[in-house]
Design a protein around this nucleic acid. Structure first.
Length: 260
DNA sequence: AAATATTTCAACCGCTAGGAC
DNA sequence: TGTCCTAGCGGTTGAAATATT
């Protein structure tokens, strides 16, 4: 456990106060304070947390802790094969735009998806050269801007129907149950089923054509290589990306389906 | 059983966009 | 219009857990 460097804390415009921010793993007590803060004040205004909740954490750290670990609507536990398929597909469409991908996976965070991708897929992917990738991304973004706007509209409608089910009692009980593990709960080993049902029921905003396709978890190495070669060559890097893109979903499905 | 290598993932950092002043 | 602040994003780090030798 270590302590943060001295930083300038801003207590309103023009008023600066020296503050030593705590860094490193969160304790159960810090979690409890943060949860209580959000219960009372809602999300946002993260830089006020230190002052109002008595936490020696900066706003950035608080926001990250809340978003990635304490939010009650998080889906905990292993990434399912269906989620894996969605990640695969969306990454071929969006690249490393993790927050965009995460919006299609209720209860999963961008950080979680990013980590999952890095540990499970990146090492297996044959990357095109940087120049080729940049060119591809430029074309991608142009084409996908319109798609993204439409998707966001749909998501907004869907999200409006989902009430923010803030189960602070559940979180408190969870923190208390694990308080004996203080000062640090090893988050990676915790399996808590808070709100698991609701996230399952919400379904996915994006899914593979056959609904329950597992893309690669059980693949043998040779099959994976074929798959990844296919994924990275799916677009025409010489400029006909729109054609390839239009066919990418079908193409991806055809590539993946044999392994499901 | 111990040492070493590998994997996992929470948390940090730097950067940027957008809004307020 | 420029500056400051906040929130959010993606990349990276490093400690802990797990697997392998």
């Amino acid at each position: 456990m270590y302590w943060g460097e001295v930083m300038a804390g801003h207590m309103g415009r023009g008023v600066i106060e020296e503050q030593v921010w705590r860094k490193g793993p969160w304790t159960a007590e810090e979690d409890r304070l943060l949860v209580e803060y959000v219960r009372l004040h809602g999300e946002g205004r993260w830089n006020s947390v230190a002052r109002l909740a008595g936490l020696k954490r900066n706003g950035k750290s608080c926001r990250l802790r809340w978003v990635n670990y304490l939010r009650p609507d998080l889906k905990r536990g292993q990434i399912t094969s269906q989620e894996e398929s969605i990640i695969l597909e969306l990454h071929t469409r969006w690249g490393n735009r993790w927050s965009t991908i995460a919006r299609s996976l209720p209860g999963r965070t961008d950080n979680e998806i990013k980590n999952y991708w890095r540990t499970h897929f990146k090492k297996k992917a044959k990357r095109p050269s940087d120049a080729v990738e940049k060119a591809r991304n430029r074309l991608l973004r142009k084409q996908q801007f319109h798609q993204q706007q439409q998707q966001q509209l749909q998501q907004q409608k869907a999200q409006q129907q989902l009430q923010f089910n803030f189960d602070v009692k559940g979180i408190m009980a969870f923190l208390e149950d694990n308080s004996h593990k203080a000062p640090y709960i090893s988050q990676s080993r915790l399996v808590v089923n808070m709100h698991q049902n609701t996230t399952e029921e919400q379904g996915y905003l994006y899914s593979m054509p056959n609904g329950n396709c597992s893309a690669s978890s059980a693949l043998e190495t040779s099959a994976e290589e074929v798959l990844w070669d296919g994924l990275w060559n799916i677009d025409d890097v010489h400029g006909n990306f729109s054609v390839a893109s239009a066919a990418s979903k079908v193409g991806l499905y055809n590539l993946v389906a044999p392994f499901c």
